[in-house]
Design a protein around this nucleic acid. Structure first.
Lengths: 202, 202, 202, 202
DNA sequence: TATGAATGAGAATTCATTCAT
DNA sequence: TATGAATGAATTCTCATTCAT
């Protein structure tokens, strides 16, 4: 039992360190981008040796993937929650926007897609594609529902709606507005919602 | 006169080859991203030797810049035309959307910005920053005008409008919808316009 | 204390390896010249991988500089010692010759100066220029002193003397005579001294 | 006959152009050194196309060799003249010094030897070695003669004398003193002679 | 013959990954 | 297990040489 407890402790420490590495990597990656972030830099920022990174992650791409994957699942999860949300289709989408708006890393990944291409190759790519298509299906589903309920304009193809909806999460727009202190996060969300649902016309 | 014609011919050929290289590079870059595109690969795709690339462009960064710069100027130019367009603010923006919607490379560059950081360093960066800030100013100007004319919602900060407006040109959305043959280009534009100005609500 | 000892050991090993690389590089450089010596070749001769060179030296030019700099400082140091040497001006110069005659690399560098131009650019060049001008000044000083003491011929410009004096250290002459086993090092020095101070006439 | 005359004219023009190229190359090489002088640069300086260089010389090394070879032969020739010169051994050497002192390119080549190594490889190297050994033999011969005539110090090995004698022609010393306007060419020669034959002692 | 565009081998440098301690 | 030195494949860029016009 003593041994087991120790292992558990060790295991916990391992997990913690892994989370710490991922958090560090996220910060560096978002600041510098995938290619300008070296393993050396991640290690240095995490205060560990480069070799240690490889004890936790098989490769740079695996590390980045380990960073991306849970964000995608989390987003997918929110989509599922939104679908199950008790309210109108609009309220579902609003719920989704409110919950995910500051999850900039998700959109960061989407935008960096070409740069990170190698991360999404092979087996990993297949997984990601599945999650992404589930996300988009979920969003499409909510929009379809809204159309059926006659609250969304059925003249616009649902897929286009879904794609432009995803676009709302663009971290560039968010950071330009919020991080530069021009509007508060809450206001930003309010305006985005307004623009998406009613457009900019008076 | 004969000589002159020859020179002109040579020069023309040179320009054509240069355009061909740029076109090739654009295709490869958009598919693979800046860092995953090697000069070797561009050369191979263009069917020329690596050294030849360097006869036309001093460095990889210069090549990419040669690709980016005219697209940015062209976009800026369209913004100027839009400002001068005879019509309402909305009509101006519609004109802009119609003219630039398929210029995917512009947005590709915006998204790849961190990856391409070296391209926009030094003198080149200064130029680009000027053009970009002129573009955004122009777009802001048109939106302000629309607010003054009471056709746009003055409750939303103009900068946010401008940023979300720019986002419309995201190549991912465009290619997902148009390139995958789901809607025609014209329809795509029509729907985008509708969504931007009136939102998705019925 | 154990830890400290380890660190010291590591550091010492590092220094040793660095010295070994420099020694290897010196041999290759003197045989092949700056441009015909590739980093690959230095690495191969040192029995290490190319990348390892870059762990010790930021660039080829830094490596070569690391080779040149101490030799120059050592030469300058000997000049200072010579100036302070207790004896006549001639004895000072003799001291200098005896101490530095086999330091072939110094003259090698002087001869290879145009080839190595890039090594002596910028900050590095400034340092080197200072050392070189201190060396030549020192030698001029000793010669002036000899003239004042009426033991050197004041009809000959001191600068010319100094330049021809430096020329004595030409590695080609040294290796032709000593390395080919024609005369011993001591004899070589004796003859050089005789020729420099008394000429070849009987 | 008309045809022949034309050919001769052409041939003469060819020779002239070849000489012009060589002259141009010499200037550029002496200023920049072997490796920092590109074929492009030689062509540009000569006002012809790069391809044309290759109509005259099979390769860069051949071009440089064509530059070096006649200088060596000319030097050898002067050595022969010196040997046949009507006068004492000293007068023979003085004749040699006076005639060749400004032929800096010869010494430039000697100094640049490692840099130009490839020029003196293979068949070309063999030729050069022959000429060089003839030169050194001739100089040794004159010194031996001087020793036999008891005007040179027979305590010093003749080979060393010969090597140090060659060293007199070092272009660096020459240019430092003459080109910088510190002493006239004639004075420079006078001082060199004095130092070589009588040393610097009073 | 003269041209200069095209070629591609070769060199410096970087950095993800491995491995001895 | 943790370290960080060592590795070498991959990449950018240069320049002597070739070749189509």
């Amino acid at each position: 039992m003593e041994k087991r407890a120790k292992l558990t402790l060790k295991e916990r420490q391992r997990q913690e360190r892994e989370q710490f590495i991922l958090q560090t990597a996220e910060n560096v990656l978002m600041k510098k981008g995938y290619h300008h972030t070296s393993m050396d830099e991640i290690a240095a920022n995490a205060g560990i040796a480069k070799g240690t990174l490889y004890l936790h992650f098989k490769s740079k791409d695996e590390l980045v993937f380990a960073l991306v994957e849970p964000k995608l699942y989390s987003f997918l999860n929110t989509v599922e929650e939104a679908k199950a949300y008790h309210g109108s289709s609009k309220e579902k989408l609003v719920f989704l926007i409110k919950k995910e708006m500051s999850g900039a890393f998700f959109q960061f990944v989407m935008k960096s897609y070409p740069d990170m291409a190698s991360v999404f190759q092979g087996e990993r790519g297949v997984q990601i594609q599945k999650v992404l298509s589930n996300i988009i299906s979920g969003i499409i589903e909510i929009h379809e529902e809204g159309k059926a309920a006659k609250i969304f304009d059925s003249a616009i193809p649902t897929e286009m709606m879904a794609n432009l909806f995803m676009n709302i999460f663009d971290p560039h727009v968010y950071s330009e507005s919020v991080k530069n202190g021009k509007v508060s996060k809450d206001d930003f969300i309010r305006y985005v919602i307004k623009m998406y649902f009613q457009g900019i016309e008076k």
